[in-house]
Simulated scan of single mutants.
Amino acid sequence: MTDSYLSVVKVKNQWLFDQVEVEFPTPESLKGRAIYQAICESSKITPMARNIEGIGINSDDIYLVDFHRLTVMFSLLQASRGCNEQEKHYLLEFFTQIIFSEPCYLYVGFNQSEPVAAALVTHFENELLVSDIVIKDPSYGSNEQFAQAVTNKWLKSNEFAGSFYIEL
């Protein structure tokens, strides 16, 4: 890894960790943050080749999380990363604390009106990171395909000519 895209990862992690830095955080959300931090330690960051065609996921079925109901859907999908019901509960508490703000953007993918995928896009300086990819239904597509689809969706609203990375 280079320092360059390590910065985008640090920015993403700090943004998420800071979501529970409030006057009275719940003990459950703090436990969820600790579980999430452990998940981050085992993640791998790699450059993402841009593949605009042939990804198989319709970007019209991917939505930017910009209101509470989508935040809940995003959080439920993220909570599925827990190893047991208790961890899932704590992760859910952690992710439902999210307040929309740059440089991170949350996305939820739908299949037949059901939320089946989620990812987080972080834009920092000249890097774009797609991370926290969760796919509930494997028939929807792979992590890489969803990352490409989310990137394409983000690019419809943002100009960007930098480097792309994926966290798996």
Rank of each mutant, 00 (worst) to 15 (best):
S29R: 06
E23G: 04
A149D: 11
T46H: 14
V108E: 10
A38H: 04
D66L: 10
S75D: 11
N126D: 06
E144V: 15
L128E: 09
S42M: 01
I39H: 11
V108L: 05
E127I: 02
E144I: 15
F67I: 07
N51S: 08
L91E: 03
Q148E: 14
R33K: 15
P27F: 03
P138L: 00
E21H: 07
G54P: 05
N126K: 04
T26S: 15
V108D: 05
K44A: 09
Y105H: 02
V116L: 04
S80K: 12
F146S: 05
V72Q: 12
E41Q: 09
E53L: 05
D66S: 11
E127S: 08
I45V: 15
L129N: 03
L16A: 08
N143D: 09
A149S: 12
Q145D: 11
L16P: 02
V20F: 06
K44Q: 11
T151H: 06
I133V: 13
V20H: 02
E102K: 11
V150I: 12
D66T: 08
R50W: 00
I98L: 04
Q145M: 07
S75G: 09
L129S: 06
E21Q: 11
G141M: 03
E28Q: 14
M48N: 01
S131E: 14
E53R: 12
N13T: 13
S43L: 11
L30S: 13
V72L: 15
S142C: 11
N58Y: 06
